[in-house]
């Protein structure tokens, strides 16, 4: 496997260091060839920077990509926004040579060059495509048989497709497949691909952001799932923090929100604390208790079966 740099972005280190811990724990635990890189800035964020100055958006993104280009690394990000922005910028420069030359003439003045050689991946499709079923299944100590998960893809994991090309943009499958490799059931639900709506919190429209969060939480509460699984700090903010805010105001959903690496890490045998699960606003205790209970029941079943066997029963 080609060595890769992890692009943390701004939100994870600033607001959710425990997610960074979860990702680091799993990457190290799987023995993947990754490293931290010096010199990154904001990806930059599309809705904010691109709306105001497209040229600066492209230039900043090209500089970030140039850092991994120069070192011959690929790039993997646990943030959907970052990867979507970087891939869109890379795609734009690949089809517009004049713009690429222009960007490089500016980058040259700070000693950098954008080639676009580096592969850009989001963590979820990266685990699906590059790490693969064999390695993942070999690392699992305790799977999630009997548990129901609501996968929330996060728009920018696979959109825009013309830039990311990593899954079907309107009917993605890879995240669900990963859940099935972990033994869990990924339930189908109406609003599965609906945007989380967190963007509204960035334009001073908090009540509308909450309204969007309710759409999904209400459906999940009604169909009954053990947890929601996602892999985007923005979506996490929307469903963990904002769900917590709504619960404080008297609404009740009780849907634990797990990062993809939380789930994988638990299956690999890491403790909830090692994955920073105790820092989630919405308690994951109920989820963990059910998981323990299922395994305890399996142990009892096994014991009974063994006892019968000793007595000569046909089991």
């Amino acid at each position: 496997m080609k060595e890769f740099a992890v692009f943390w972005g701004c939100t994870i280190p600033a607001r959710f260091p425990f997610i960074e811990k979860s990702v680091r724990t799993v990457l190290n635990g799987m023995g993947l060839p990754w490293r931290d890189c010096e010199g990154f800035t904001c990806c930059p964020e599309k809705s904010l920077i691109n709306n105001i100055d497209h040229g600066l958006w492209v230039l900043t993104g090209a500089r970030n990509i140039a850092i991994v280009d120069e070192q011959g690394l690929d790039l993997v990000s646990p943030c959907t926004g970052c990867i979507s922005n970087l891939a869109t910028i890379k795609g734009e420069l690949h089809v517009d040579h004049r713009k690429k030359e222009e960007v490089n003439s500016m980058l040259k003045e700070v000693g950098r060059k954008f080639t676009g050689r580096a592969g850009l991946n989001h963590l979820v499709p990266f685990f699906h495509d590059k790490v693969g079923a064999f390695r993942i299944k070999s690392a699992i100590k305790k799977d999630f048989r009997g548990m129901r998960f609501a996968v929330h893809y996060g728009c920018h994991m696979m959109r825009p497709y013309h830039a990311l090309k990593n899954d079907d943009p309107l009917e993605p499958k890879k995240f669900d497949t990963l859940i099935s490799w972990l033994g869990g059931e990924s339930v189908n639900y109406m609003t599965k691909l609906t945007c989380c709506g967190q963007g509204l919190d960035r334009v001073d429209q908090h009540p509308t952001a909450l309204q969007m969060a309710r759409v999904k939480l209400k459906e999940l509460k009604s169909i009954g799932v053990d947890a929601m699984v996602l892999c985007c700090p923005s979506c996490f903010l929307q469903f963990d923090n904002n769900q917590f805010l709504m619960e404080k105001e008297g609404e009740s959903y009780g849907i634990p929100v797990l990062y993809f690496t939380d789930l994988l890490g638990l299956a690999m045998g890491y403790s909830p604390e090692e994955l920073g699960l105790n820092q989630h606003r919405i308690s994951v205790d109920g989820f963990l208790e059910k998981w323990e209970r299922l395994w305890a029941a399996r142990d009892t079943e096994k014991k009974i079966a063994e006892e019968f066997k000793e007595e000569g029963a046909f089991i």
Binding site: P13, R15, E20, K21, G39, F40, T41, E45, R63
Partner: peptide, 29 residues
Amino acid sequence: RLGEPAMGQRKRLGLPEPKKSGKEEFLKL
């Protein structure tokens, strides 16, 4: 950047020192 690493929380979690950002080079650019 749009936010600086939360140093106190990082320390409590036992996370390594974050790598230097490209701030100066970015400002030049």
